[in-house]
Computed example of a mutant assay.
Amino acid sequence: MEVAVHDLDLAYGDFTAIKSLDLTIPDGESVVLLGQSGCGKTSTMRCIAGLETPTGGTISIGDKTVFDGNSGRVVPVYKRNVGMVFQSYAVWPHKTVLENVAFPLKMKGVAKARRRTEALAVLELVGLAHLADRGASMLSGGQMQRVALARSMAMSPSVLLLDEPLSNLDARLRDDLRVELRRIQTERGLTSLYVTHDQQEALALADRIAIMQAGRISQLGTPEEIYGTPASASIASFLGVTNVFPVAPGSTSRALELADTEVVLRTDRAVPAVASSACIRPEDITVTLDSGNDVSDLSGKRGDANHLGGVVRIAVFQGSTIRCKVEIDGGIELDAVCPPPSTGVLAPGARVTVSVDAAAVKVLPDEVPSAETRAAVAA
């Protein structure tokens, strides 16, 4: 079912956790709320579930309004038909896997034979049917998380809410379960809202990603849109862009001066009129061992690219790639991820040339302006 949140506010005393938030999740879509701790993403989910009472706005699930700040309508949790999967597994250790999954069906009054059949069907979906009669206390962490997911799905929820359910698992298991979660959500056509601070998780699980900052959604788009065109330098930094440098006032796209340095770059992006930063992804940087040529001789000979001389300070071998930090002549350090050179070694102290296409230099406003700021500018 579609979930519609309009003009949602949530305050705790003088602190506002959610500010005029609007979000619509179409039927069958997976939306991920992505943001740093304290940005309001879990509070938003808890408001939809009914675990928090907002201070204003409306929330609808399907054609049913479950919260309306103006009329005072508040539908209790158990009447919203939402399934929740928490960071802690919340699995009953004294029950079997099957009993855990069948419990919500029992609470709904489903007959014993039917609830066993339905619970086994969901366990088959999450790959745990062979462990149906095993005690839950004998499961691994990943298996417990699958039980928690199956239990929420068994009640056939209108909306599935997941609050960082994979954060307690090791890296390899998280990767595996991301794929499983995406498969299940797609196959079942579940309307789902997933909360995380892990960008890789968001990219893997979302039809759309909502970036939350300071209680509001600052950017909403597909994973490809969010990754490729972040709306601000702060979002780019959060998404893993490690090369973020303030731009000096008066810079142009052909003479992009990095503040407090002697470095000047070119970009094919317009320079915003507000405080902004140059953002370069490490994987968009090419590092070449210095052949002894003057770097200035390279200008204009490799297309529309920036060529900067520097010295490798740190180099970390990562198998198919090398992650290195290069101190550029002129006062900045660039983080780069590149393949090993065909000849020679990228080692600390080596002279190198760093090349960055102008198209890879994104110039972004430091922050996405709030609705209040945009209104003030328009006025």
Rank of each mutant, 00 (worst) to 15 (best):
A11H: 12
R313W: 00
D133N: 08
L203V: 13
C324Q: 04
F67N: 06
S299C: 04
E99Q: 15
F238S: 06
L239D: 13
G292F: 00
E2T: 02
A305P: 11
R351A: 06
Q318F: 15
E99A: 15
I48N: 12
G38V: 07
G240R: 02
A204K: 05
A315I: 01
R269M: 13
G135S: 08
E52F: 01
D9I: 14
L308G: 03
N70S: 03
Q318S: 08
L160N: 10
A255R: 15
Y194F: 12
P157Q: 05
V263H: 04
M212W: 02
M212R: 04
I184R: 05
K325D: 04
R116E: 15
G240M: 14
I18Y: 02
P76F: 08
Q36T: 02
A231H: 08
H307W: 09
E164C: 05
S192A: 10
V337W: 07
L10P: 01
K64E: 04
V122I: 07
D268S: 12
A305H: 11
A204Q: 05
L105K: 09
A113S: 13
M212Q: 04
S296K: 09
L265A: 11
L161V: 12
D284G: 09
P223N: 10
L23C: 14
T267K: 02
R374E: 09
T373A: 13
A278K: 04
T24D: 02
F67M: 10
K112R: 08
A255D: 10
R208V: 06
A119F: 14
R266D: 13
V5F: 02
T267M: 03
R266T: 12
G221S: 08
A305E: 15
L265I: 12
V326L: 02
L203D: 14
G189Y: 14
Q213G: 03
M212C: 07
V179F: 00
E180V: 03
G344Q: 02
A11V: 12
V271Y: 11
F245D: 07
A231S: 13
V337A: 13
V66C: 11
C338T: 14
Y89M: 15
V122T: 02
L34T: 05
G72Q: 07
S88F: 11
V356Y: 00
G72W: 08
V345H: 09
A236Q: 10
S253W: 04
D329H: 14
S218E: 00
I235C: 07
G127L: 03
S342G: 07
I209Q: 07
L258Y: 01
K106W: 15
V122N: 02
G221T: 06
G331M: 11
W92T: 15
S137C: 13
T373E: 14
L123Y: 11
E2H: 02
T186S: 06
H130W: 05
L364V: 11
T117N: 05
D207Q: 08
V91K: 08
L98P: 03
K41N: 07
E2V: 00
P104C: 05
G141S: 03
Y78D: 04
G319K: 00
F238W: 01
V241R: 00
L308M: 11
L125D: 09
S60Y: 08
T55C: 06
Y194G: 13
V74H: 12
I235M: 08
E99V: 14
T16P: 10
V101C: 11
D335A: 14
G344D: 01
D268E: 09
A350R: 01
